[in-house]
Design a binder for these strands. Structure first.
Lengths: 358, 358
DNA sequence: TTGTATGCGTTATCAC
DNA sequence: GTGATAACGCATACAA
């Protein structure tokens, strides 16, 4: 439309024959301004294709409408769902979303948080990487203290006690999954866990251990493999597990990427999940189901987690005195057959399962 | 660390016993400032955990370090690869990335562009949705004209002529894929295309048509199915195609989501790609390959496209007079076996293939 | 080499 | 109702 190059509130005021204060009032449709002048001002604004500068508003307001989202791995589909949930709620509340990828690198995370501080973000949603050294936690607490609310997603952070959290019930989800494996008759059950320092990894291992213990299955350290959150290491873990003299008949994988790594090893070696070995993963992989690969998984709604997290953040941004909260998103065991294995007979006496017992 | 609440340049100046101008000079390590005072100022800054306000800098500088990225579907992995490439280059050049999802909704896109205007973004990377009505194109040209460079990714936009573009060579990629199907002996070859108004869709159909024509295979409209960019519609298309009295022996799918929709229909009906029917898709789906489902595809590097696009944007942001450019990212045909079908014998005389002929 | 004063585009506090 | 004018935090021409 128009040139709209040097349009500012002053110019609009001049053209409408009013003061900048009045224009500002119209923009924020605040207070009383005579309908006639309001209309005149609005006319001039649309006529000149004018939009107020968010930068200037932010400076004057001492706030911003930008929310920072920090994730450790933009390649992991889990975060796609998360981000989608986040953006949807953000948009509804007129917030914009700034994305940062830390690549599971704590140093990078510090830099990112520094950048966020400069930007004066309105709030922070983070799945942290530097969870153990206390540095990230301290920085986040500082943000919170200085009026920039923080919500931790998926992972706890050392030193971040008291911050809002949205977590899945990892322990219960794993417990349920491993109980199912036991119910299927498996006795040599392995787990491919991830980076030990991450809370979800730890909790999932806890669920695994409790399931075995409560059902009288002995825990053997050789069946506990630690990788990281990526597929490649999981592939190696699977290889190691299957080369044991008494290999496991079932494997529980700690996340979606790790499930893929494990599956890839199986496939390359001509093995089929649900037949040659029992497999249950954590986090669903939509595509597999679409194409008829029946992987049983512990599912959690990442979109739901994103929505919840953003809603909590909005609450804090609108009300500085809002109580802190901890949301736990339930998991759901989806059985598609890969939990079985040929030659392993389902138990007759059903082992415990918290979900059904209580 | 410290309270760091009301730290601004003035406060730092006071504590360091200098003027704000000097502090500013230190911040921007500009001009000559006596090493001694520089050090003193820096000491005070770190001591007080001070970071300059990006908002204030932006306002003063009349620029910003935020780049807006607009995509039509945050569920499609293609865009995550794109975003990963973008963020990587952005970060290197100290830009931050604001993400907007239009959900393939043109109206939404207008709103988003309005928001971006307010934010005074330094540049815009967009895979547009409103490609046909000229509105989006006009807005983008306005941005470009008023000093906010724009790079179109993946899709042309009506009215956006002259803007920078990063596109895949869709026509050639499709041509190559369909030639391969012909070489495999297929004669009844269908295409599941998407939303006709989108340039990649159109170009892929062109490649399909050229391949058939050049190889003397008659084009039949019943073998051309139009869906949208999503899996569900593609599923329906596949269903319709296979219910024809003379169903196709091979199908070329217009994008990754559509490949999945088609595969799902096949699987639900007990058919196997590469055996009961030949399938080639556009855009690779990593997971499938990981788990041993050999889908042949036309691959393009979305990460590379993201990198290229951001690099072009950076060039323009740094130099307002930079020449506009059009980058075409080559595609690569990856054959994994799904292009074959039982009962269809490969041709002996090889049909043309632009890649190899020239 | 350093300091003073003004501007960036808005909002908010006063007056009128 | 409306209008001056001082913030907001920083950069910079101009002085010193």
């Amino acid at each position: 439309m128009s040139i709209a190059s040097k349009m500012n509130i002053r110019e609009i005021a001049r053209l409408a024959g009013v003061s900048v204060a009045t224009v500002s009032r119209v923009i924020n449709n605040s207070e009383s301004v005579k309908p006639a002048t309001r209309e005149r001002v609005q006319a001039v604004m649309t006529e000149n294709n004018y939009v107020p500068s968010a930068t200037a508003r932010d400076l004057s307001f001492q706030r911003s409408e930008v929310v920072a989202v920090v994730v450790p791995d933009l390649k992991n589909p889990f975060f796609y769902g998360l981000i989608e949930g986040i953006t949807r709620v953000a948009e509804k509340n007129h917030y914009q979303v700034l994305i940062f990828n830390t690549n599971e690198d704590a140093q990078k995370e510090y830099q990112v948080l520094e950048t966020i501080r400069q930007r004066n973000a309105a709030g922070i949603l983070i799945t942290a990487t530097g969870v153990r050294d206390g540095h990230t936690g301290a920085m986040l607490k500082e943000f919170q203290a200085s009026g920039t609310p923080v919500v931790l997603i998926d992972r706890f952070v050392e030193g971040g006690e008291g911050l809002d959290t949205v977590m899945a019930d990892n322990e219960a989800g794993s417990y349920e999954a491993v109980c199912e494996l036991i119910r299927q008759g498996h006795e040599r059950i392995a787990i491919i866990a991830g980076e030990k320092t991450l809370s979800p990894v730890y909790e999932r291992e806890l669920g695994y251990r409790r399931a075995l213990t409560e059902n009288g299955v002995k825990i053997r350290s050789m069946y506990i493999a630690y990788g990281n959150q990526m597929a490649d290491r999981s592939y190696s873990c699977m290889k190691r597990l299957l080369s044991l003299s008494k290999p496991p008949t079932a494997v529980f994988c700690g996340n979606n990427q790790m499930s893929l790594g494990a599956l890839r090893y199986l496939i390359e070696n001509g093995m089929v999940a649900g037949k040659d070995i029992g497999i249950v993963g954590f986090d669903d992989i939509d595509v597999l189901n679409d194409v008829g690969i029946p992987l049983s998984v512990v599912d959690r709604s990442e979109k739901e987690m994103g929505r919840k997290a953003m809603e909590m953040l909005v609450r804090h941004m609108k009300d500085r005195d809002a109580q802190s909260a901890h949301v736990s998103v339930p998991t759901r065991l989806i059985l598609r057959g890969s939990e079985k294995a040929d030659g392993v007979e389902p138990r007759t006496r059903k082992p415990g399962n918290r979900r059904r017992d209580t």
